[in-house]
Design a protein around this nucleic acid. Structure first.
Lengths: 230, 230
DNA sequence: CTTCGGGCTTAACAGTTTCTTAAGGGTTCT
DNA sequence: AGAACCCTTAAGAAACTGTTAAGCCCGAAG
C-alpha cells in the first residue's frame, strides 16, 4: 500500500447529486463521506477530518458560506464550492472565504474530479518542507530518499515496514498500540486486523535487528503494543 | 542566511480581488505591493522593481496590454495576466506580449499562488547565470542545449523524457512519486494518468541504461515511485 | 488538402513483490 | 496451572511494475 487513500467529504442536500459525485470519486480511488446539510457537514468534518471538502452553497440548516467559514477555522482541508449561483459576486464571496475552487451547476462529474485532483495536488505541493532524516542509535531513516541504514549498512524495507519504522522513529520511546500503528502507517481507512502489525514487526526485526530473537530496537510491551528503544 | 523575500506587484483595480490575492501571497511568504490602475502599476514597478507582476487586463487609466508592453521594456519581471476575458484570442494576445502565464477570473487564489511559484521557478532558472549542466556519474545533461550524453555518447531524448531526467538529475537520490514527477516534468495542470510516467521511464531507461533490465541510474522504489541512483 | 511520422497517452496482460490471514506453538502474566 | 497474549510460518490474495501495442494529436512534408 503506497499512500493512504484521500478522504473527500461531500456536503450537498440533493442526494442524487451527492451520489453521482460519490460514484465518480470512488472510482478515482477516493474515500468518500456524504453529509446532507450544513450541520451534518461540520459534524462529519470533526469526527473524520477529510483531505478535501466539496461544499454546496445552498444548504438546509446552515448556509454554505457559514459552513465554509467555520470549516476554515476548524480544519486545514481545502474546499471546492459547488453551486447553481454563478455571478461574479458569489464567486468572489466564496473565494474570499477561502474556497480553493468553485464549480457551478450543472457541472460534469469528470470536471469536478479533475478539480479535486488539481486542488489536492496544489495543496500537497505546498508543504514540501524538507523532512530531516530520523535517527536512533545506529538506525538512520531518510524519508526523502526512502532509505534506511543500520550501522551504515543499507536495509531494504517494504513500504509498510518503512512507514512503521518511521512512525516509531519519530517518537523514540513512545509506546504505540497496534491500532495507532495501523492508523499512522497504513492509513485511516485501513480495514484489516490489528494483528497484521505483528507480521510486519517481525519482518522489520529480521531486517534491522542484529539478533531478531533478542530485539534491541523494537521492543514488545506485553498487552499493549510496541515501542522503539527502552 | 535567509533568502530575501520575493516581491510581487499586483496591478488590479478591484480592491477586493487585490486584497484576497495579497492575503494568499503574503501567507506564502511573498512581499506584496498593490497598484490600482495602470499608471500606478508602472510607477510602482519603477520605484520598487518586483520579481513578478500580476496584471489585470481591464484597468482604468491604461489598458493592461499596454502596461504589459511597457513593463516588458522596463524590467525583467515575469508577468501573470489576470482577466475575465477568456477567449483563445485574448490568451494569445497576452502571451504574445510576453505574459508568462494567464489566469482567467474567477480564479482560485491557491491556483494563482501555484502559478506564481511555478513561474518564479521557471524564470529563476532561465534568467540566472547560464545554468550549469547537470551530471551524475556518466550522465551529462545540458539544459540549454537540450543535450544528453551517457559516457560521452549522445542520447536522443524526447521532450518529456528530457524533462523527467532533468527533474531526477536536479536532486539525485531523492525519491519522487509519480504525481511529483508528472507535476514537475509535465506541468501542474496535467490531467492524465500517473502511470504514463512508467512508459516514459521505460523509454528513458532504454536510451540511457547500459542494461535496461538492470537499471543503475533510474531506480524503482516499489509502491512509491522513482529516484536517481541509490 | 492529405499523408506521414514522432511523440504522448491509454489499456491490457504478465510477472513480481508485498500484504493479509489463519493456525499452531511458545511466552508471559496472574 | 490457566488464560491471555505474542511469534512464526506459509499460502493465498492483493497490489504494483514492466512491457507492449494501438490510438490520438499535431506539425511537417508532399
Amino acid at each position: 500500500m503506497a499512500i493512504a487513500r484521500r478522504r473527500v467529504l461531500i456536503v450537498e442536500d440533493d442526494h442524487k447529486t451527492a451520489d453521482i459525485v460519490r460514484l465518480y470519486l470512488e472510482r478515482d480511488g477516493y474515500s468518500v463521506t456524504s453529509a446532507y446539510d450544513g450541520m451534518a457537514g461540520l459534524e462529519a468534518a470533526r469526527t473524520e477530518p477529510p483531505d478535501l471538502v466539496i461544499l454546496d452553497l445552498l444548504l438546509p440548516r446552515m448556509n454554505g458560506l457559514d459552513v465554509c467559514r467555520r470549516l476554515r477555522n476548524e480544519c486545514e482541508a481545502p474546499i471546492i464550492m459547488l453551486t447553481a449561483l454563478s455571478t461574479e459576486q458569489d464567486k468572489l464571496a466564496g473565494l474570499e472565504l477561502g474556497a480553493d475552487d468553485y464549480v457551478t451547476k450543472p457541472f460534469s462529474p469528470r470536471e469536478l474530479c479533475a478539480r479535486v485532483k488539481a486542488v489536492l495536488r496544489r495543496t500537497a505541493e505546498g508543504n514540501d518542507a524538507p523532512q530531516p532524516p530520523l535517527t536512533y542509535r545506529d538506525l538512520f531513516l531518510d524519508q526523502e530518499r526512502h532509505a534506511v541504514t543500520v550501522g551504515g549498512i543499507a536495509a531494504h524495507l517494504t513500504p509498510t515496514e518503512f512507514q512503521i519504522l518511521a512512525v516509531l522513529l519519530k517518537e523514540p520511546g513512545r509506546l504505540f498500540n497496534r491500532g495507532q500503528l495501523v492508523e499512522r502507517a497504513l492509513g485511516y481507512d485501513y480495514d484489516g486486523l490489528d494483528r497484521t502489525v505483528d507480521v510486519h514487526i517481525r519482518n522489520l526485526r529480521r531486517k534491522i535487528e542484529p539478533d531478531p530473537d533478542a530485539p534491541t530496537y523494537i521492543r514488545t510491551v506485553y498487552g499493549i503494543g510496541y515501542k522503539l528503544g527502552p
